[in-house]
Nucleic acid binder design. Structure first.
Lengths: 137, 137
DNA sequence: CCAAGACATTGATGCTCGTCTATCTCTCTG
DNA sequence: CAGAGAGATAGACGAGCATCAATGTCTTGG
């Protein structure tokens, strides 16, 4: 597998740190472009196949709100019991959406006793935001 | 309608210019948060309903590559005839995907004679990238 | 050990989506 | 004006998705 376009792991350093988007190092000849934004150089088919599932996971109003609730929660994590109450949807439906976000690599799951806590992978969100949002050169 | 979270029009100035993501003005009490990123404050249900269609439009490998091809094309625009050749898909399928991107507000269409040119709405991409990618405070 | 509660899983249902073939509309050329 | 070519539209079809009710799996308290 080639170098990932999206950094999912908070432990891994970002090759394009947030805020550095305007001073991206110029592309080295022969080297794969890491974090190549959408507007600079064409995404390969395989890169597109890699990124699309992340966007698809986010491309639902309920999941967007879930991500926002979790990411903005004090402490960086939220209990499922709190999330369930924030929506007018059944508990299995919320559980399903959380699983979609977790499988996409946008949430981390942590079970502590009876309760389950989800945490946002801010690195993945940052990478995705840079990929989409960086302006053309 | 409340103030839009996503700036679609290149003529309109961005309330959160690219690169300004780390120095966002502190939220004024009582004022709606413009361009409130995903990780800061919870998206309302209506805001999520507004943003999700944009992400859904992008959340397809073919459309991601189309956006990338158009956005990175010299001159900022690309002819449909060139785009058709870049994919192993039928012409109506490409036309359909371009329409989805245009209806979402991510592409502008310009017919000149026999040919049709599409141009990326970089402002919309920038807003979307900031919304997703800005880190929590 | 048992009952209760938190969350996940299963299976069903109706809707949306990506793709295709066929056809249509528009514009230029001869 | 007729034909050709560029691109859009229409309709069909199979796959995928969001939701729910019902049920299953853990974990804790008594």
């Amino acid at each position: 597998m080639s170098k990932s376009l999206i950094v999912l792991d908070d432990q891994t350093s970002l090759c394009c740190a947030p805020g550095a988007q305007l001073q991206l190092p110029s592309q080295q000849a022969g080297q794969p472009v890491c974090c190549a934004p959408l507007s600079r150089g064409q995404l390969t088919a395989s890169q597109a196949e890699e990124v699309a599932p992340l966007l698809k996971a986010l491309a639902d109003p309920v999941r967007l709100r879930l991500m926002s609730l979790v990411a903005s929660h004090p402490g960086g994590e939220a209990c499922v019991c709190d999330l369930n109450e924030a929506f007018d949807l059944s508990q299995p439906t919320i559980s399903h959406h959380l699983k979609v976000l977790k499988d996409a690599g946008l949430l981390d799951r942590d079970k502590r006793g009876v309760w389950v806590y989800y945490r946002a992978r801010t690195q993945a969100l940052a990478s995705l935001g840079l990929l989409i949002g960086s302006p053309p050169l």
